[in-house]
């Protein structure tokens, strides 16, 4: 199963290495990872999607990450009310006839064309993983030359659903 984990960490050199090191040492598979500064310049947020067999594995992972001195807080937000977005850039082969077709196709996805050349264009799409996947599928017949994706970044919504009791009270 896929889980979305967010970690707030001190914005120091080597922290990403510490976090991914914990994961690889304990044989967790990272599907995607994205890192960026938060509203506080001294704190970064790491969002990663991991694939695990059992939910117990995630508990072990979050505990191990929490043991890192530079890690402030770790949350598995998969089951919470979350906003999760990713961005993809898709470079397509085009000609005069396909170009306008692409424009109309991407419109319902609120994607945009950010670069155009004689025989190609680049589409930028943001949204949930399923939305991005769906658009890429639709664009595939036109001939995809390149794809660059960011991975998921996420946090919980301001209005939360009722929190589940955590497994361990410490």
């Amino acid at each position: 199963m896929k889980r979305i984990i967010t970690a707030t960490v001190l914005n120091k050199s080597g922290v990403l290495n510490r976090v991914t090191g914990v994961m690889s040492r304990r044989r967790f598979n990272i599907e995607s990872i994205s890192v960026g500064q938060t509203e506080n310049v001294n704190i970064s947020r790491i969002t990663f999607v991991v694939v695990v067999d059992m939910i117990d594995d995630i508990e072990q992972l979050t505990k191990q990450l929490n043991k890192q001195i530079d890690v402030l807080k770790v949350n598995d937000i998969t089951d919470e009310s979350v906003i999760a977005r990713e961005l993809a850039l898709v470079k397509l082969s085009t000609n005069k006839t396909t170009r306008s077709e692409i424009y109309s196709l991407i419109e319902p996805f609120r994607a945009s064309v950010i670069d155009v050349s004689k025989d190609s264009l680049v589409v930028q799409v943001t949204g949930t993983n399923t939305k991005v996947e769906a658009l890429i599928d639709l664009l595939r017949p036109f001939g995809i030359k390149e794809i660059a994706r960011t991975g998921v970044t996420a946090f919980t919504r301001s209005v939360k659903i009722e929190e589940k009791p955590t497994a361990f009270i410490s």
Binding site: D56, E59, Q60, K63, Q64, N66, K67, A167, F168, S170
Partner: peptide, 18 residues
């Protein structure tokens, strides 16, 4: 004292971190 040890190997019924 290390919460990560609890439940790592043996499923625990009464965890006590401290």
């Amino acid at each position: 004292i290390d919460p990560a040890e609890i439940g790592k190997i043996i499923k625990t019924d009464i965890p006590i971190v401290g």
